[in-house]
Each structure stands twice: as C-alpha cells, then as structure tokens.
Design a protein around this nucleic acid. Structure first.
Lengths: 365, 365
DNA sequence: GAAAGAAGCTAAATGGATTTAGCAATGGCG
DNA sequence: CGCCATTGCTAAATCCATTTAGCTTCTTTC
C-alpha cells in the first residue's frame, strides 16, 4: 500500500483525514492538546490517523516556525569514512563539540553531526552537494578517489580538509615527509639493518606520504630497499596476520614502522609469540593517535599523533570560514616525537634490557 | 554595534539594505546569479551586504523550500557525556551510522548527530526539550543525576536509554549483577585472596552496578571486604596513579577487577613496574569494550564488552519507536566472557608461565 | 521604424508546522 | 430568560528561503 515514492504525510493530510483543522492536529502532535482544549475523543482520532498514515514530522518546518527568534542554529558536520579508525573519529568529534560548547551563546546554538561515507566513495554520498544541510564541515580520512572528487566539486558550504592538500580549499595536514623520514631515522639510529613498514591496504594521502617518505629515507641512507608489509585492515589481528606471513616467509625484520597505532599492537603480539624481544631484537616505531602508546610493553616510540593537533587547528579555521574571515590555504602541523623504550638502542654489548631503567622522553619539533 | 540578542539577519534585510528584491539576494547567495542574470555589480553589492550584516543562512527555511518533495529527512542523535570514553562514543556512532546507511532509501534520508553534555549536567543541555531537532535519540553514559532528570522530564521525541533502567522509557542495559559477579568469581577461582576493584570517580549506573555486585560476591564467597580503588579519571595514567598509591600504602592486591578497559591498561603498567607478574602474582579482569584486550601482554580476561552489543540492540529499538511500533520496556544484554592469560590459574607448583602454551578461550553466555 | 531578443530584475507562490485571535455552541446561574 | 463563562474548535499570519512566471528597458536586426 505504501508506495515507495509518495510525498511525505503532512499535518494537512491528517487534518483532512480526520475532518479537523491543522491547528488541532498540530496541537495534538505537539502534546499541547490540554491547554488548547481539544476534546479527548478528537485527540484520539488524530493520534490514530497520524499513526495509520505514517506521519513523520518535518523538522525543517517545525523549526522554522517554533524557533525562538533571536536564536540561530549553526549546523556543523564532520565527514569521515566508515573505514577510518574509530578513535580518530571520536577525537575529532570531541574537539569540535568542545569548541562549539564554548562558542555557544544565548543567540547562537551549534549542532554537530557526523556523516560517514565509504572510503573512496564520497561521491556517492547523497546530499553532499546540497546547500540545505550544513553551515560548515570538516572532511577527513579521504582516499585519493575522494580527494579527486573534492577537487572538482564545488561544495556549497565552507569546508576544512584534514590530511590532504586540495587546491582552493582550506587544508590542515601533517608536515609532508616528516613522519616517514623521522621514523626511518629513528630505526636507523637504533641500528636496524632490515627495516620494514606496515600499512593498511587503503592509503589516505597522509599514510601514503608516511610510507613513501619512510622508504625514500631508508633507501637514501642505507642503500637498501625496506620491506613493505600490507595489512588487509587496520585492526590488530589483521596486522598480526600480515606480519606473521611476512616473517614466516623468512624475511628478516629488525625494525618496524607502523603507520597506525593499531597496527603496532598487532605487531607486538607477533614479535612476542616469535620470541623476539623489543627493542633488543626488533625496534618498533608507531603513531601516537591515542593515549595508549605509552602503555605498551615496552612503551612505544611514536612519531606523529598529529590527529589531535590537526583537529585543534581545523576547528578555529572552520569558525573563521563561517565568519567570512580570510584563512591560510593550508596549515602544516609538525607532529611531536616521543622516544620510548620500543626503540631504545641497547648499550653495546651489555644486553641488559631492564625496561624501567633510564626512562627518557623527548619531544622534538 | 552587534547587539547580543538581535534577531538573525535574513535575506529580507539584505534585500532592503541593497535595494533589490529577495529573489535577487537568494539567487546570489545560492551562487545562481549567472543563470538568473544578475548584473555583476549587483552581485558584488549583495555579497558585500551579506558579509557586512553578518548573514547566516537559516537552514530550516532553506530546507523547507528546496527539499525535493518525496524525500523526508529523519534526524537522529546520540546523546553522550563529554567524560565518556571516546571509543564507546565512536562505536555507538558507527553502529548507528551503519544501520542508517542500510535503511536509507530514495525517499528517506537519515542524519546522525552527536550531542554531548557534561556528566551529571544533562539538565543544562540547551535544546534538550525542544521538539524541533530530532526524530529520535539514543542516550548513553548518564550519571545518576542525569537519570533522575530523565525520569521526570518528558522528552518530546522517542528515546532509547543505554545502560540505565528508567521507568516508562525503552532501555537497553547489561544484565544486572552479571559482570560484577562473574568478575569476582573469576578472581576467586584464580585463587585470589586479596581482590580489589578499580573504577573512576564518576559512576554511571552500569559501572556502579558492576562495582556493587563485585563487592557483594567477594564478600559472600570469601567473607572478606574487597579493596575499592577510586581513580580520578578513566585515562590509564590516572588509574596508574591511584593504584600506585594504593599499593604504596602497603595494601596487598593479588587480583584486580577494572570496570573500564583503559583502567586495566594503567594497572598493567603499575604491576609491571612493581615487578609483579600477571597472572602469577596478580590476576586481572577487565572489560572488553574495545578490541584491544586480546593484545594486552598477557592477554586480558574480559567480562562485559557489552557496549557494542547494547548499541546493536538499541538501534533497531529506536527504529521501531520511530515507526510507532510497540517495544519492550527493557532489553537485557548478557555480555560475553573471555577467559585469557591475565587470570589463568597457574598449575600448582609448576610456575611455568609460558604465555603461548595452552591457549584456551571460552565464550560464556 | 517596428519586431524580436536579451538583460536585469520583481511579484508572488510555495514548503510544513505553530500559534494567536476569535467564533460558535453549550452549560450554569441568577 | 438573558448573560457570562467555558468548551472546542478554525482562520489566518508567520517563520525564511527558493523559484517560476512575467514585466520593463535596452539593444539588435531587417
């Protein structure tokens, strides 16, 4: 009976169906029937009709009318991919909400929404080009296909792009090459001779840059080709499977750069089960996007962890765009570096690897 | 000049200011001025006026008009606290978005928003009682103060409550007592004689229930009082500080139940630095809300991890509420139990703690 | 010089819901 | 019986932006 493409039911239809005015219907549906003195029987008939007809209120109409004048609502959104690590999404959300919480005043209210697209398919996201949804958005975790689409599309609202440079848009990204290069240097300084990098199959601009810079640096400094291990996903068990397979083929690995911290978790488990000690037998460098790196055993050296910093930059930029103020075309974020036990270079000869001794931590710029 | 409480600028004001019609203004602001043949000079004047007056488009008005008829938009939200663990928020979001992604059709579009309140202060969240924002919400991570408010308030939209039973509302929660009791039993079976529980200072209904049931079970079975360690926050370093302090006071602990997995991470570090081996010297039971527990060293035994399961239950319930279908007043979720190395009872006498040996894992219902 | 076409705008309808002012019918009271 | 209060409803204005049809004025063309 319910046609797939019938215009939505409005209160007019309900009113007509019941034989009353829209005012009565509205009063009932807003639970104002007592003060508006609608007879109980009528209330019941209206309610039933609404249910039978499948009424769904139109929030736009409702809001347009009922909104206390002098209060404007600003709708912001974070656009991210389903495949992105959840903690990153949570972080971005939290940062934006917190900013919004501060900015909110009596006459301006902010709302934060999340929109998710399937990695590489942002073009298929319905409503993306509609001007009637958001005042501004932050876009993150895009794949190259998505970037290409965004470069050509004209979004009808201000947007800040995270992790990717797109001409004509305001972008916040990791200082190019930095993470890959520093990771490679740290492994080389740890004395690694057979370094490897592990990454997920889907590469964002940021992770691709990390991998490329890592490989280039290793090549330049050691004249050898680093091993590249591709994991089918970012979950620890995927990483573990990929690394296990790599090792079982007899490829030696004495240094690993994991482009995402969840990959490092999987790697730790594999090395442990293979009886390879960190950092004595193998050094590991990861990314510190969540607070966990410090609590790995041994504590994980991290380069990057720029997500939080990037979001922190992006939010004020978005607000400036909303106010129509000029913004820099791009902001580069240099991530902090934390040297921890996982790459501690063992003192020559003395293979004493007491973890708690000599904890030093440095933040490099 | 800009009064704090002036009604928002509309296109009428811009039109009046510039001396043109609203049609012209609308055309320009929607970037339709070329096809609508507005003179470049006029375009410029309108743009300038919009900027000077501080125009912010009213999305409700825009949407009401431009929305392709036959497409209805359904706005859903997740209400959670700022203080809640981010991964849980990300999980809920992901589950809802995924459900919504499946449900979306040509004539129905869903939007998912996040609203955050400060723990215990949901009553101060502006717009919470407005009927003009959401078609339905999922509320989670509430403190008792919030619960009390929700019990009295009449929300003008359907809501599913996570983790708390509130009369007259549709609730999804952990089977009461289960997590605390099972955790206690596991520790007792591991041979613990001085069990403790660690939790954050702010207790949701769920975590309070876990702590209470744990303490009761320990008391009943061992005739002793378990130690209760209170951490100032849920972050690992907070947990570490609280546990360290507890141990430094000479309180023995040979079994720990961490009501949140981030607390377990901090505990691991403390035990390690104190030279106490897990599970030989101390057994640890945690909660498996993210995928990490398996990758702890040694792998963490988890009871609960019900968040994902709860969200999975909540989403279909919300959709049923939206359709006006009857729903059960409450749904109990019995969380899975994973016995891992952190509570393996060492074989009597043989203090061989090789982690990789004899891996067994059981899922209990 | 008249007709046709283009340029540059405007008037008015429209979308869905809320709300205020007010009307008609009924009941109660003196 | 007439007046007032109450009950139960309706008509119409309103919120803000978009869009269609159409109206001037000017330019071009034959």
């Amino acid at each position: 009976m319910k046609s797939a493409n019938r215009p939505p039911v409005t209160i007019y239809e309900i009113a007509h169906h019941v034989g009353v005015s829209t005012a009565a219907v509205s009063s009932v549906l807003a639970n104002r029937h007592v003060e508006r003195r609608i007879a109980p029987a009528t209330v019941e008939r209206i309610r039933r009709a609404a249910h039978v007809l499948g009424y769904v209120p139109n929030m736009a109409g409702r809001r347009l009318r009922s909104q206390r004048t002098a209060t404007r609502q600003i709708d912001l959104a974070i656009l991210t991919s389903f495949e992105a690590p959840l903690p990153l999404v949570g972080q971005a959300l939290h940062a934006l909400q917190r900013a919004v919480d501060v900015q909110s005043t009596a006459d301006t209210r902010y709302a934060v929404a999340i929109e998710m697209f399937h990695a590489g398919l942002i073009r298929e996201k319905t409503g993306l080009l509609d001007a009637d949804r958001y005042h501004g958005v932050i876009i993150t975790n895009t794949l190259p296909e998505d970037d290409r689409f965004l470069a050509e599309a004209t979004l009808p609202y201000p947007a800040v792009i995270l992790g990717r440079r797109i001409a004509g848009r305001c972008c916040v990204l990791e200082a190019p090459e930095f993470v890959g290069r520093r990771s490679a240097e740290i492994l080389i300084e740890s004395g690694c001779r057979a370094p490897a990098v592990i990454h997920g199959r889907l590469l964002t601009h940021t992770t691709a840059d990390r991998v490329a810079a890592f490989c280039r640096t290793i090549r330049e400094r050691t004249r050898r080709e680093p091993a590249v291990i591709v994991s089918d996903g970012l979950q620890p068990h995927r990483a573990a499977a990929a690394l296990e397979q790599h090792c079982s083929r007899g490829h030696p690995v004495d240094g690993l750069f994991a482009v995402t911290d969840s990959l490092a978790i999987g790697a730790y488990r594999v090395f442990r089960s293979l009886g390879r000690r960190i950092p004595t037998d193998v050094a590991v460098v990861g990314v510190g996007d969540h607070e966990l790196a410090e609590f790995f055993d041994p504590a994980l050296t991290t380069v990057a962890g720029a997500n939080e910093a990037m979001v922190a930059e992006a939010v004020p930029l978005l607000f400036r765009l909303l106010r129509g103020e000029p913004v820099p075309p791009e902001v580069l974020v240099v991530p902090p570096v934390f040297l921890r036990e996982s790459t501690r270079r063992p003192r020559p000869r003395v293979s004493n690897s007491k973890a708690s001794a000599a904890r030093r931590r440095r933040a490099a710029r």
